[in-house]
Design a protein around this nucleic acid. Sequence first.
DNA 1: GCCTGTGAAGCTATTCACAGCT
DNA 2: AGCTGTGAATAGCTTCACAGGC
Lengths: 205, 205
Amino acid sequence: MISEKIVERLSLYRWLLETRLENEVSNLFSYQLASMACVSPAQIRRDLMTIGYSGSPGKGYLVADLAKSIGKELDGAKPSKVAVVGMGNLGRALVSFISDRRSHLQIVATFDTDSTKYGRVICGCRCYAQNELEKIIKLEGITVAILTLPSDAAQAVADRLEKAGVTGILNYAPVPLKVSKKVYLENRDVTAALEKVAYFAREGD
Amino acid sequence: MISEKIVERLSLYRWLLETRLENEVSNLFSYQLASMACVSPAQIRRDLMTIGYSGSPGKGYLVADLAKSIGKELDGAKPSKVAVVGMGNLGRALVSFISDRRSHLQIVATFDTDSTKYGRVICGCRCYAQNELEKIIKLEGITVAILTLPSDAAQAVADRLEKAGVTGILNYAPVPLKVSKKVYLENRDVTAALEKVAYFAREGD
DNA sequence: GCCTGTGAAGCTATTCACAGCT
DNA sequence: AGCTGTGAATAGCTTCACAGGC
């Protein structure tokens, strides 16, 4: 079990390796990857140590091989399936965003309560009526959900997702959800992030 | 100077106090706020200690007063002005989101390179041509910027923002920006967040 | 009795610094 | 000579546990 922060950085390393380096260089040193990822070289070496990846002094790390090793840790046997609940502006934006970027995850379903939205393909992904949530989640074997809906609906949907078998939720609704310990929850409150940036913009880091 | 994590939590506490409690109760105990914010009561007490706020045993904390005290720490003398650069799906979604939620920050300008977008009011906020960036930033005294534009443009815009006087950047472009130490940078990479959730959804927290 | 405020302990994350390899 | 891998040191964050007040 790798810690949260390390997982996040590994994900970044892999992305840098795949999109910036794979066709440019075949190997690189910790300080080079460090500079691209804006972390210390020691941090890179520690992180790679936790996934048991070894480079060699003189050669550094093999780009393609390292990317694959990170993948072996981050991805499961098969890619997790993702659903997006709430296809307002934010939901649509995230679906496009994730599709644009080469990702190791697939968004296989989106949901909305608005009948002008469901029954169609939006941003390249089928949108279902929200009352079909349980059915589709089970049918597709979806384990991860992104919540982009109004605060007042978020908790009820989270409960339904959990019952249907979802074990990871990425929550963009500005409300702290309560979920059981079996579900991993990540809150991405936009306002809190912005207030934080504003604070440090003023206080001068 | 308060630490990043504490600032983030304080922002959440204030929001809970203002939107959930202000008209309901006049005082509350650390364990009550803790349960709403999904943190431990000891954490609440520590956090309030760092801003020098005292409650009283038996009464707990005064809701309205505490909210104001947090505000005194988080907000400056006058509210920071915010700009959004890149009014694609994500930019528009964030502008609406932030306007909907009662916020202590004001979005005073948005920018885009697309001439069908600038020159109008989008989501309640004036959209300017991106080549007016420096002019408007200086004119309005904008110190915080949200970046929601394609990766390849992000670094150049970040450089321009910094030169124009911006000291805080909230970056949604999936690329680690390089900025000088004077600028506080927060990266909110959607894909990294999603990969993290997928990892812990699988590994079972 | 039940709460707050807080020193001290415990835990996690990051950096240092250097032996060992190429 | 210059890098990696890693024990040890440091820094930062959270919880414990309890004295003191209402």
